[in-house]
Each structure stands twice: as structure tokens, then as C-alpha cells.
Amino acid sequence: MNPILIVEDEPSMLMGLKDNLEFESYQVDTADDGELGLKKILENQYSLVLLDVMLPNISGFDICKKARAQGVKTPIILLTAKGEEIDKVLGLELGADDYITKPFSLRELLARIRAVLRRTQDISSPKQSEKLHIGRLSIDFNSYVGEVEDKEVKMSHKEVEILHYLWDNRNKTVSRDDLLDKVWGMEYQPTSRTIDNFVLKLRQKIEDDPNHAKIILTVHGVGYKLVNS
């Protein structure tokens, strides 16, 4: 297993996390500021990143956004002192896999790490290596690259994972709870509104008319169904 990267500017928190994770037999790398953290994320392979949101110079949100824009698929758990829903939703929509609000217990943190690692490993293997055509979109689930009319379109980490799960269950109704469980983990779920926002973005890439969807259908009161003829 590759090391876990901790990006945290508070020295006591950084060393405490490092010592505890190493005690649990994880390999650990660290960065004490956001710019160094982003550099390490882009240049190295990690099993997971623990990323503080409130960093000087560049926030954890911006690091997450930039990493995903560069195609980094490494799971990211945000560490934040903020508990407001809007901050949680923003982090998840930028591509984070989970968040944990300070102060937190070591037991909770370890449970989050294990759950995210297990979930992301399950989602990432195996995947189709060829391009699939879903409406207007051509997508390669291995590379996380999508194209519309032969032009690459930006797709977030979570957009691809949601679409992949819908594709695997095409022509079946998939509940919002199923998506929350398989993509984020039910125990640490965001709100179902987050799923709706991601589906809206997917429709804009897939549908000829996103306001009158014919491929990702809404099953009212339940969830969604991907129909691909």
C-alpha cells in the first residue's frame, strides 16, 4: 500500500496524526502547507490524502479542485473545523471522498480511512478499458476522460463514479441511498441534494436536451434510472 499523505499546518495536529497512523502500521508522508501538499499530491502516488481545509495561501478546497482537474484519483478526506452543510457539500462536489469535522476521535478517523480505502478500491477495480457511448458522451471509466463531439469535457471524480454505477445498473432503478452508499458510503453520507446536483451536471454532458432527459431518468421519490439503447 502506498503512503497516506497528511496536509496540515498545525504542528501538533500534524505530528499527532502521523504518530497515530504509523502506530496503526500505515506509511505516512506529510506536508505542513498547502502549496507543498499540492506539489506532493501531483508528483507522488498515495493511497489516501488527509487534507486540512483551513490552510494558509491555498485552501484545502482549492487543492482538491486542482488535484482533480489534473486527473488525480487518490481518495481525499477533508479535515475541517467547519460544520456547516454548505462547506461539506462544497468539498464533496469538488471531488473529496469524505470529510471529518474537528475535533474527532482517533477511532472515528481510522474508521473513515478504512471505509474510504475499501470503497474506492471496490469502485476502481475492475473497470471497462474501452470508451463507452452514453448519449452525447463518450467515456473511458479507466482514465476518467469524457468527450462530447470529439472534444474533451471536464468531469469530476465523483461525476465519473456516479455515472459508472448507473451504467453498471443500467435499465434498473437506482435509489439515492444506493448512490450515497456506493459512492460515498452510507455511514458518512452527504445530503441527497448533492446527488441531484451531480446528476444535473451529468445530464448537461449526456442529454440532447437536459431539461427533458431521455437517458438519465428521474424515478420520483426513489432515485434515477440510466436507459441506454
Rank of each mutant, 00 (worst) to 15 (best):
N2A: 07
N2D: 02
I4K: 06
I6N: 07
I6T: 05
V7K: 10
E8R: 15
D9S: 03
D9K: 06
P11H: 03
S12A: 14
M13I: 07
M13V: 04
L14F: 13
G16K: 08
K18D: 00
K18F: 04
E22S: 15
F23E: 13
Y26D: 06
Y26E: 00
L38D: 03
L38Y: 14
K39S: 09
I41T: 13
I41Y: 13
L42V: 06
Q45P: 11
S47L: 00
L50W: 12
V53N: 05
V53Y: 09
V53L: 03
V53D: 02
N57A: 00
S59K: 08
D62L: 03
D62C: 02
K65A: 04
K65M: 04
K66C: 01
K66D: 01
A69L: 10
Q70R: 12
G71M: 08
G71Q: 00
V72N: 11
T74G: 01
I76M: 05
A81M: 10
E84F: 08
E85C: 06
I86Y: 14
D87I: 07
D87M: 12
K88G: 06
L90W: 14
G91H: 00
E93A: 00
G95M: 07
D97I: 08
D98C: 05
T101M: 01
P103F: 09
F104P: 02
F104A: 06
L109V: 02
L109T: 10
L109P: 12
L110V: 06
A111Y: 10
A115F: 10
V116N: 11
L117G: 05
S124W: 09
S124C: 08
S125M: 13
P126A: 15
K127D: 05
K127G: 08
Q128M: 15
K131H: 14
R136Y: 05
R136F: 11
L137R: 14
I139A: 02
D140Y: 14
D140F: 14
D140W: 14
N142M: 15
Y144W: 11
V145L: 11
E147D: 07
E147W: 15
V148N: 07
D150L: 09
K151I: 05
V153N: 03
V153K: 14
V153M: 09
K154L: 12
K154I: 07
S156M: 01
S156P: 05
V160P: 12
E161K: 09
I162A: 06
I162T: 15
L163E: 11
Y165F: 12
L166N: 10
W167R: 05
D168W: 10
N169S: 11
K172T: 07
K172G: 10
V174N: 02
D178E: 13
L179R: 10
L180P: 04
L180C: 11
G185E: 09
E187N: 09
Y188C: 06
Q189S: 12
T194E: 10
I195H: 03
I195R: 01
V199C: 03
R203H: 13
Q204R: 11
K205M: 02
K205D: 00
I206F: 03
I206N: 05
E207W: 06
D208G: 03
D208R: 05
N211Q: 15
N211S: 15
K214V: 02
I216H: 07
V219T: 04
G221L: 12
G221Y: 13
V222A: 02
G223C: 10
G223L: 04
Y224V: 02
Y224T: 01
Y224A: 01
L226M: 02
V227E: 06
N228L: 13
N228C: 15
N228P: 12
S229F: 08
